[in-house]
Design a protein around this nucleic acid. Structure first.
Lengths: 178, 178
DNA sequence: CTTCCATATATCTGACAGATATGTCCGAAC
DNA sequence: GTTCGGACATATCTGTCAGATATATGGAAG
């Protein structure tokens, strides 16, 4: 686990609130930050193992009672590592838009191929707006401090603005498409 | 090279315009689609080798005259593969915003740590807007058809809208920050 | 009673970014 | 005239990560 890895920190961040299993961590990520952050089990489980080996989390396994279950709890070292990382300037995200690539390359094959892609983009943006509006409503229902809700709503807000910008762009491109 | 790989297609797309070396392909990518697509040499050179092995591009090496130089030209098979891919619906991009992750987790450590990150985001958005405005001006100077310019400008336009949305969001977050 | 879904863990493959290594050619400073 | 830096040019290696796959349990619906 080098400098660049970020999976450790989202896990440490969520474990600050309460101890969880890997499965629960994944579900929580999807529910709370799924609109701007994804994790996969292929990344999650090895990272938890590594975090445990480095003493940033502690683990309590309960194979008894049938179902496998490993509950992870953040340690003081883990909290320290997280806060150190949070203070560092965030690295710019690597963007790779397949939609825009196809728009750019559409100059090769005619705009007719492009229309379905733009229509799909409008539908996706609308779905995203619907989803984020529901998330925004859910945040208020969440048992959390006012400050926590404000930070969370901030992330939802940028998601909404981006989705709306994308929708407006795609609709304009469709109406202009000669 | 599986179904999911997209590096091959940007290379094929650019080689539709003119034969190029790997180095020139990288420079062209940065100049034309750098605002929404990046490539690295570690991905580019092996992909060109593979594309050649599969007969989607032809290669003409000229080690003579000192400097190494391999010029790649797209084949009919390459063009066919590209157009097949362009017709497929674009896969949604995986988003992973380190800035938003730190905003979300800021509920743990106080907003004071957040302000420098938001100020950096405003600066980055301004830089991006400046850059894309310059790109937009450069597109008109480019020797290309009207249709090509339209497709290209469309990608620049979404970049500008996104950057403006991000700037507005970050400025609002800063002014609201109690 | 079995089929389907949520819970739960784990590994493997392939895509990809970033770093590193190596070497040439050319123009400018010195 | 030579050395130094930057553009040109190729290539590989490491580590991060997404997605697919494998495996197994418990509970609810049918």
């Amino acid at each position: 686990m080098s400098e660049r890895a970020r999976t450790p920190y989202i896990l440490l961040g969520l474990l600050c609130h309460e101890p969880m299993t890997g499965y629960e961590l994944n579900a929580t990520i999807q529910r709370t930050v799924g609109h701007f952050w994804q994790e996969s089990f292929g990344q999650l489980y090895p990272t938890l193992k590594d975090l445990h080996a480095r003493g940033l989390v502690s683990m309590s396994a309960s194979a008894a009672g049938g179902r496998d279950r490993k509950v992870y709890t953040i340690t003081d070292d883990g909290r320290a590592a997280l806060f150190r990382w949070l203070a560092e300037p965030p690295q710019p995200s690597v963007v790779r838009s397949e939609l825009l690539l196809k728009v750019f390359l559409a100059s090769l094959g005619g705009v007719d191929d492009l229309r379905p892609h733009l229509e799909a983009a409008v539908r996706a943006a609308n779905a995203q707006i619907t989803h984020l509006t529901a998330v925004r409503a859910a945040v208020d229902a969440e048992p959390a401090t006012e400050h926590q809700r404000r930070c969370w709503l901030l992330t939802v807000d940028l998601g909404l603005r981006s989705a709306e910008a994308t929708r407006a762009w795609a609709e304009r491109a469709l109406s202009e498409g000669t």
